[in-house]
C-alpha cells in the first residue's frame, strides 16, 4: 500500500480492463516520472472523451456529433446493414476496407443471466431503420459465441417477414494458420461450412 493519492491512482487504474494490480502500479509510477505536460495531455484527453463522445443516433456507434462519420458518408451503400455488438466491432470490420454498407451497433448480446434481453439492445431502432424498404441485406456479425449466436438467431427470426437477405459471416479456419492448431469446435464448424472447390 502507498500513501493517499498514489494509492488512489493505482486503485483507479486497476479498475480498467486488462490492467491488474502490478500493471496499475507500473503505470502509476510511469506517470509520476513522466513529463508533467504529457500527463496533462493524457488527463485532458480523458476528460474530453467523456464530454465530447456520444453515440450515433442512427447506428449507435461512437460519434462526435449527432451521427457518426459512417452514417454521414454519402458514398456508403444504403442497402446493406451490418449488425454488430460493440463499437469496437465496427472498427474491426472497417479494417478490411471491403464493406461499404452501414452498421448497426446493438450494445451487447442477448444474455438472460446478465439481465440483457431484446429490449435492452438497440433492436427497436434497427427495426425502424429497416421499415422504409431501402435496406435489402442484413449481415448479422454478432460474436460467434453462444450469446452472439442466440442474438443472430433472434434477429433472423424477427426480420424474416420482411423478406430481406439475411447473412452471417462464415466461421472456420483462420487464414495463414495450421489446421492442426484449430480447436475441435472451430474445426467442426469449418467442416460443416465446407464449400465446393470449383476448378
Amino acid at each position: 500500500m502507498y500513501e493517499g493519492v498514489i494509492q488512489h491512482l493505482i486503485d483507479e487504474l486497476g479498475r480498467l480492463p486488462g490492467v491488474g494490480p502490478k500493471g496499475a502500479q507500473r503505470i502509476a509510477f510511469h506517470l509520476l516520472a513522466a513529463d508533467p505536460e504529457d500527463v496533462k495531455r493524457l488527463a485532458a484527453a480523458l476528460v474530453e472523451v467523456t464530454e465530447r463522445v456520444r453515440f450515433c443516433r442512427t447506428c449507435g456507434n461512437v460519434a462526435e456529433a449527432d451521427e457518426c462519420r459512417i452514417c454521414l458518408d454519402p458514398r456508403r451503400d444504403l442497402s446493406v446493414i451490418c449488425v454488430v455488438e460493440e463499437p469496437k466491432d465496427v472498427a474491426a470490420i472497417e479494417k478490411i476496407r471491403e464493406f461499404r454498407g452501414r452498421y448497426h451497433v446493438l450494445g451487447g448480446a442477448i444474455s438472460p443471466i446478465d439481465g440483457v434481453g431484446p429490449d435492452e439492445l438497440r433492436i427497436r431502432e434497427l427495426m425502424t431503420r429497416l421499415s422504409d424498404g431501402t435496406v435489402t441485406e442484413l449481415i448479422l456479425a454478432t460474436d460467434p459465441n453462444l450469446e452472439g449466436e442466440a442474438t443472430a438467431t433472434y434477429l433472423a427470426r424477427l426480420v424474416k417477414p420482411m423478406g430481406l437477405r439475411v447473412t452471417r459471416p462464415a466461421s472456420g479456419l483462420p487464414v495463414g494458420g495450421d489446421l492442426e492448431y484449430a480447436d475441435e469446435v472451430t474445426l467442426g464448424r469449418a467442416f460443416e461450412g465446407r464449400r465446393l472447390l470449383d476448378v
Binding site: 453462444l146 438467431t153 433472434y154
Partner: peptide, 9 residues
C-alpha cells in the same frame, strides 16, 4: 420469441 431462440440452442 426470445425463448424460441434458446429452445433451438
Amino acid at each position: 420469441a426470445t425463448l424460441d431462440v434458446w429452445d433451438a440452442h
